[in-house]
Nucleic acid binder design. Structure first.
Lengths: 341, 341
DNA sequence: ATATTTTAGGCAATCGATTGCAATTGTAAA
DNA sequence: TTTACAATTGCAATCGATTGCCTAAAATAT
């Protein structure tokens, strides 16, 4: 395997008896170059198999058409969809995506953010890890004048663009739906309250209960039930109460809802007749469980695209952006697990 | 927002009355620098909030510790898992991942590969698009001496590292299992035969039938049924035959298997008693359908890690690599949809 | 025919970090 | 005391592309 050296603009210049600057101008489609010369350069470049050295170019230009993405885990449906949507927008603009996982660890998140700063990326898109910590690393990003866009899980105090789901409204809608279906004791599975998204969902739940004249009962709010396993455990406890709930809103995720479904089915409880279930996220599987699970769609691909458009400043005057924030209205998807009317 | 200029090694050098080269040596932990000086530089760099400019460094060093990843779609469980596994290995080595989607389009694939070449990435990891075309773009990668690793769907003629599932054996095992469960007319849902993975699965199916003395019937092999929709259509057709199959092996994907399940259930056919079903990929949902679906696990996260280790040459002498190829043995996961013994 | 403006292309500095080689200082051996 | 050598540090070129400034030639205006 011979290490054939890369063709540079100097090689092309030499061959054509031109200055490198002219070659550069021809390749970058400048107007300070004769049309014939330009054509000749282009042709020769193709023949010589020239590929621009992006690092040299970026160094000189002081910019790097790359966007860094930091998510807790890329193999979660929601996040991989965000990335898919984002990539569609960025690729068409000639931008690349550098993807990093924080694995829900704050320390790792700091590390990857620093790596991205090193790369001189033009923007960073992040959904913060559940493990809380300072937001100094994000402040660093801002100090360096790198565009920062937060989505889904955000540090609220930081003045950056944010793309959010309206968790409050979605949660309110879900609980209202359950009430309309005649459920009277609606339990809530909560996520870690350090994350605002889970706080908002809880608030929506409480507000909906109050709005319909229902009591808000501590005993029906189950903390930290945000995995399938924890959702299942919570369900065991809840169903053993003297007067158990007749519906469970797994505000944390569809996985938690799945845990509920499995435990309830295992106990021979009929769904939706004896117990209503609602999840969150519209994971693909919610459609095919039996019964199918009512849930909330977050329009993740759309969110990804929105983030991309925000980066390129294409939404600033659209009216969608209020206080640097775009709120995407999630949609309640009613399925069999909560339909008894 | 003030544009505060980035601190460079020159800024540090000036402040400490040193040469930039010394600062560079201190920061890169060279041994050609006094320990005290090194400590001082490190301290000052931290104070001045220095972050290395990766582009300058990479340009000078002529290398970029980045690996480009090209997959058809990143929001597919298999691929996002591959990436997750790969990222784990690469991040620990200080390497970044640049992720691109081909969207199953050959043209797009060529485009993104060129972008990656521009970036001077040290390696490219790819699973080719279903849309076939020339492999010139991959040859280019090799010509430029960029490490190329193909996985899952590969161009066989190209002499590169390959990480594959042993599709033949997995398929053989699945069909053998169905035979052992007493199924006698086993249909096959095939994928596009341009992709070797689907050819191999078909071969495994045929071989297993022959090995057990079963006839190989054209009428039971259904071409191009590789989505949920197409799987459903195929099932309609197959079940309307004069003597319909008593088992369907959706060798293309679990999604196709799901299509089979839905159609069969809709027709009131009992599974697994009257019809056995086996899918491929071990998508999370196969565990929670009713009945749960027998499938094949591809160890996607492991595959991702293997790819990473291959890139860093850490498997070359392990005996796992034969003819530049690592074969990962998938595992049959037997669930209810095929268990009637 | 002369003056002025355009156009095309060259020169050289620049982006920031790295590195081979030279220079300096200090230390040990002769 | 002189020589030899090692340890530090500085100097300057380099990676490849871009761009401000300058010049020569061509085109246009006077």
């Amino acid at each position: 395997m011979k290490r054939q050296k890369r063709t540079t603009i100097y090689d092309i210049a030499e061959k054509l008896n031109l200055a490198a600057s002219s070659v550069s101008r021809a390749l970058s489609n400048s107007d300070k170059i004769n049309a014939e010369t330009k054509a000749l350069v282009l042709k020769t470049a193709a023949e010589m198999n020239y590929q621009q050295n992006a690092m040299a170019s970026n160094l000189r230009k002081g910019s790097n058409p790359t966007i860094g993405v930091v998510v807790p885990r890329i193999n979660q449906y929601f996040f991989s969809n965000i990335i898919a949507g984002l990539e569609e927008v960025t690729f068409n603009k000639g931008y690349n995506l550098v993807i990093c996982q924080s694995n829900e660890s704050h320390e790792r998140e700091v590390e990857v953010v620093n790596t991205l700063i090193n790369q001189n990326v033009s923007g960073i898109v992040i959904s913060i890890a559940a493990e809380t910590g300072s937001s100094d690393h994000l402040q660093q990003v801002l100090d360096r004048n790198i565009q920062l866009i937060q989505f889904d899980r955000v540090v609220e105090e930081l003045e950056t663009f944010k793309v959010l789901n309206d968790n409050y409204k979605a949660s309110y809608a879900a609980v209202t739906h359950l009430i309309e279906q005649g459920y009277r004791r609606i339990a809530l599975l909560e996520g870690p309250q350090e994350l605002h998204i889970f706080r908002e969902r809880k608030e929506g739940y409480i507000a909906a209960l109050k709005a319909h004249g229902f009591p808000v009962l501590e005993e029906l709010m189950y903390a930290n039930a945000w995995t399938q396993e924890l959702g299942a455990q919570a369900t065991y406890k809840l169903l053993e109460m003297a007067s158990p709930p007749d519906a469970i809103f797994a505000s944390t995720s569809d996985f938690a809802a799945l845990g509920v479904l499995e435990v309830a089915t295992g106990k021979g409880i009929r769904i939706p007749e004896a117990l209503g279930i609602c999840g969150y996220s519209n994971e693909p599987f919610t459609e095919i469980t039996s019964p199918s699970i009512t849930t909330i769609d977050q329009f993740s691909i759309e969110m990804g695209k929105t983030i991309g458009n925000l980066h390129f400043q294409e939404l600033v005057n659209s009216g969608m952006v209020i206080k640097k924030t775009v709120n995407i209205r999630p949609k309640l998807i009613v399925r069999k697990s909560s339909q008894r009317v």
